[in-house]
Computed example of a mutant assay.
Amino acid sequence: MNAVPVTILTGFLGAGKTTFLNYLIKKHPNTKFAIIENEFGEINIDSELVVKTDENIFELSNGCICCSINGDLFNLLNKLVTGRYKYDHLIIETTGIADPSAVAGTFLTDYNIQTAFKLDGTICLIDAENVLEVIANEEEAAKQVLFADYIIFNKCADVDQATLNKVAETISKINPLAESEFTNYAESKKAEILSLKAYDKEKPRLQLGLGAKSAQNIFGIGQEQSFHNIVSQSFVFDQSFDLLKLRHYFTVMLAIQGAWFYRIKGIINVEGISRRLIIQSVKGAPVFTEGAAWRDDETRQTKLVFIGKELKRDILERGIKQCFYKPANL
């Protein structure tokens, strides 16, 4: 059984999530979607499409399924797996004030769920005109933007180019992990919108501002990027790491100060291990997974991105360097 890809759809209230979802369904007529929403009724479904209901699961005449959580997400996922429902892709639409990392954590930390589902990425819909003001004043909205793997700036027709440029530059600095595009009516032009592979273990995407054709620094690795109290800190290390020290550092740090970190993502070079170690932070805890093997002809570098509130670079760097591998005779 192949794991079903999962897309988390988040975004500000009124940003166009419903419009985008309907656009996806129309653009992919041969894909049978299972759609989970926090509260049934937020997504407008034509009552004429509903052909069968089973408690909180609605089967539609176009072959898609729409579900309401109204309780435990795990139980609903189990029901989708054990039922006779046929679907190719799962979309989870969160409320306008939800933290998407809590939803993502279900798919990154539970082995049983990982056998049936594979998290592909988080898409965030935001109003291009108001995004900078909103994330500066609303923490939950900031979390959505900063956790996103792909950002759709919507409703751009009435926004001048100078503002759009400022928005793109600011967001790319504080969330260097995400790709983005400008749209109207949420009509994304990205062909692989349902195949972001943001959590692919073999080819983890960690941009860190590096161009595809060169290692030239685009947004400034090693430089603090900030917007109001939101800070992005990126690090690159050539030294290898001690796995036990590293696990201890991240576990303790997030247990004590997890509320200050919106997202951590990285590829780590661990001494004595031939494969990359991938780290993600989910719900205030580190999640480590094994990635692709290091090639003999490549430099084994560690790349880490921390995104959060008022993150101090010197404190982070000092803590990370304490996890460097040191031979026993030193």
Rank of each mutant, 00 (worst) to 15 (best):
N2M: 09
N2A: 07
V4N: 01
G11A: 06
G11L: 01
T19F: 05
F20T: 00
Y23E: 10
Y23R: 13
K27D: 08
H28D: 08
N30P: 04
I35Y: 03
I36A: 06
I36P: 00
N38T: 12
E39C: 10
D46N: 15
E55S: 15
E55Q: 15
N56F: 05
L60I: 07
G63R: 07
C64Q: 06
I65P: 00
C66S: 14
L76P: 00
N78R: 12
G83W: 11
D88A: 09
H89L: 12
T94K: 05
T94L: 15
D99T: 13
F107L: 07
D110F: 13
T115P: 00
T115Q: 15
K118Q: 14
D120M: 07
G121F: 03
T122Y: 01
L125N: 00
L125T: 02
I126N: 00
E129M: 14
E129D: 13
N130W: 04
N130F: 08
I135N: 00
A136G: 10
F147N: 12
F147S: 07
A148K: 00
I151Y: 00
D158I: 10
V159F: 08
S172Y: 01
A178L: 05
E179H: 08
E181V: 05
K189A: 08
D200G: 06
K201G: 03
K203C: 03
K203I: 12
K203V: 11
R205W: 09
L210S: 04
S214C: 13
A215M: 11
G220N: 07
Q225D: 11
N229A: 11
F235M: 11
D238E: 14
D242R: 07
L243H: 11
H248L: 13
V252N: 14
I256A: 13
F261V: 15
I267A: 02
I268C: 04
N269L: 06
E271Q: 15
I278K: 01
V287W: 03
V287Y: 03
E290R: 13
G291L: 06
D297H: 11
T299P: 03
T299E: 14
R300Y: 03
Q301C: 10
G308S: 07
R313S: 10
L316S: 04
E317K: 14
K321S: 11
L330I: 13
